[in-house]
Amino acid sequence: MIRITGLSFQYGGGEKNALSDIDLEINNGDFLGIIGSSGAGKSTLTYAMNGLAPHHFRGDFRGEVTVNGLDTRQNQPEELARHVGSVFQDIDSQMLASVVEDEILFGLENFGIPHDEIERRMNDALESTGISELRSRTVASLSGGQKQKAAIAAIVALRPSIMVLDEPTGELDPQSSRMVFEILKKLNEEHGVTIVLVEQKIMLLCEFARRLAVMDGGKLILCGPVKDVLDSADRLEDAGVNIPRVATLARRLRERELYHGDIPLDIGRAKIMVEGILSDAAL
């Protein structure tokens, strides 16, 4: 689990806090989505979780971040990486090898995984991300979505208990984005991996995440179960975050006093909402 208490961070040479006074607890098995406008501090928050801040990005670090009990200031990023795996938006530059298999081997070799265990880990990672058939393909010949899956597989092979992903679908089309979310859901549900996901695609977040954290100007302004956060749509709007259209619809229907239930998070639940209103009216 990740525990962040009273965290403020200012990049060296920066003029204002990139993060101010953040308190956040992420329990084992959680699926947390982080959303906010650009410059809100989302990426910096992920750097605080994987130790890049303050080890790689130096600056003024106040407060405390612990990952599975390890204080991030006392442990180097590569030590923390045994617990937290990181995936980034820029697909091409996070790939380090020319063949998928080598990409996955890189971390396994570095962390000294016993060689008789490597083959099994490799297969498991390829299987759980659904890319077994891409094992000997060159990275350059893959589509964007396949590359991102390979990047996730390379992290999964290291078996971290937490994965932190910074806009992993930023460069992907809707179908590939959904596939990435499906993989994360599977890792979360079947393997118990805690997922922390920075994402702009609010509709996918609402469908897949369990909790949402909203950031604005370096502060964490809202955090809680997805439907509770969507209830505060006005504060979301102030933070430059839109809500899914079906959620806006539900709010309109509430204003007209036609609907009093939970905000629907996807089309299936929106359908139930509309049909419910029409059948209630008939009673």
Binding site: L52, S93, N110
Partner: peptide
């Protein structure tokens, strides 16, 4: 520069600094 920086981060987080001469699996 941006790409190289990103690559360096990715390598660092996947244990680049821990690698030894005998790490290679193949």
């Amino acid at each position: 520069v941006r790409r190289i920086e990103n690559s360096a981060i990715s390598a660092e987080l996947r244990g680049f600094n821990l690698r030894t001469r005998l790490s290679g699996y193949k």
